[in-house]
Design a protein around this nucleic acid. Structure first.
Lengths: 226, 226
DNA sequence: GATATAACTAACTAGTTCGTTCATTATTCC
DNA sequence: GGAATAATGAACGAACTAGTTAGTTATATC
């Protein structure tokens, strides 16, 4: 037994607190990287926005790149954790997939930082993601979930197509990610704020309708085989 | 005797050619910016990949930022020009919208540079796009085209929903852009190359089916109004 | 062929940026 | 309480980078 540590921890921040310092750096770095991109982010800026100094960034993370990788890891970890929470097994297939799409939509809506980091990582050809074991874990829970719903829908006859789970995930993600990631150029060109709160329900519903329509389409339109 | 120099200069490039130099800089800059992002791009690198020098970049474009804006302008111009070429008025509404989706798909497939520039511009909150008059021209031809098809589909009864042209454009773009823009992270996580030539027809068909299914869905699934 | 000017070049500068050095202070363990 | 170790800070520097200076050469025009 390593001491019960009966200290009441008096709401006071310890003068030296490794994990808190580390976490603060990570949080500030997340914002800076998401905001300015990898090359655009400035280590000095990150330091300036913490209660500590640049020296600590190098003490804890070693380099700008490793800090960025730590930020990526944390961001992906949060998303995976959220995916684990999705509970739609009790719904019938159509409602389940609709619910899943809506939850994905809401989740992206509330995590713009994550989406920006993903965009940034794509600009860099996912080189950091690829080099980080643990981040590329396949068999994500979200895919397993979709696969199960698709299977149920197929056997119940509710879904008229055989659809691959990863493909469906891509269809849903594409819509959700685009709306957040490309809102600035889209807004500039079409003068429409895709992420305006007033339009949120509208766009969430379109997504759900689109996915359900695709899965349940009557077979009349199959392919115009040019 | 220092060489006769009677060479007839056969189809020789002019030693001084303003437009060619300018265009070369623009082409090289497009690649550099698309490849490394705005902050990641190096003016010296761009100069090194041309037949001219860095001074010429400043001679013709004034600054890194103005060069970047010129690159953006050219890229958007090319896309607009391509959109003008789309000719689907002779097809019935369902085939027309399917064709439009497929053409959009193919167009994005063959212009990854443009998609990367758009991603990069979004990282920068579209600040350059917004400040460039002429780039934010509304009433794009693509939207007009979609609006016409939607109208025809509605009145013929082929389409069962009232859909906004900009929204439909967004749905199509989201799918096409995501597949190209996010292929690296998607590939790293799901071990699937979305842009693999072997899968191109597969993904193009999914898009077309999805859009057509949405527009022609029988009204049974409207909203599970939770 | 002389002249004007557009096109061009090499080398440089001022400022930035990542990363480090060296010294100091708090905390833990005995 | 004292030693060992973990955490911290101020200032520095080497390398890089956008932008400039000062001068040169090709081309068109007369």
């Amino acid at each position: 037994m390593p001491a019960p540590k009966a200290v009441p921890a008096p709401a006071r921040r310890r003068q030296r607190d490794a994990t808190q310092t580390r976490n603060e750096i990570l949080d500030v770095a997340t914002k800076e990287f998401a905001d300015r991109g990898y090359s655009g982010a400035r280590v000095d800026q990150i330091a300036a926005h913490t209660h500590t100094t640049k020296r600590m960034i190098y003490y804890y993370f070693g380099s700008k790149e490793q800090l960025y990788i730590a930020v990526l890891k944390q961001a992906y970890g949060a998303i995976r954790a959220a995916e684990q929470q999705i509970e739609v097994e009790h719904l019938d297939p159509v409602d389940a997939i609709r619910r899943l799409a809506e939850l994905t939509f809401d989740h992206h809506e509330s995590h713009p930082h994550f989406i920006r980091l993903v965009s940034i990582e794509n600009i860099h050809h996912a080189e950091h993601l690829r080099r980080s074991p643990g981040l590329t874990t396949l068999n994500m829970p979200a895919i397993e979930l979709i696969a199960k719903i698709l299977e149920r829908g197929r056997s119940s006859g509710a879904f008229t197509r055989s659809v691959d789970a990863v493909d469906l995930h891509m269809m849903i993600s594409a819509y959700c990610v685009f709306r957040v990631a490309n809102r600035h150029t889209f807004g500039a060109i079409f003068n429409r704020d895709l992420t305006s709160p007033a339009l949120r329900d509208h766009y969430r519903n379109i997504l759900a309708e689109m996915i359900v329509a695709y899965l349940t389409a009557s077979s009349k339109q199959t392919s115009t085989a040019a």
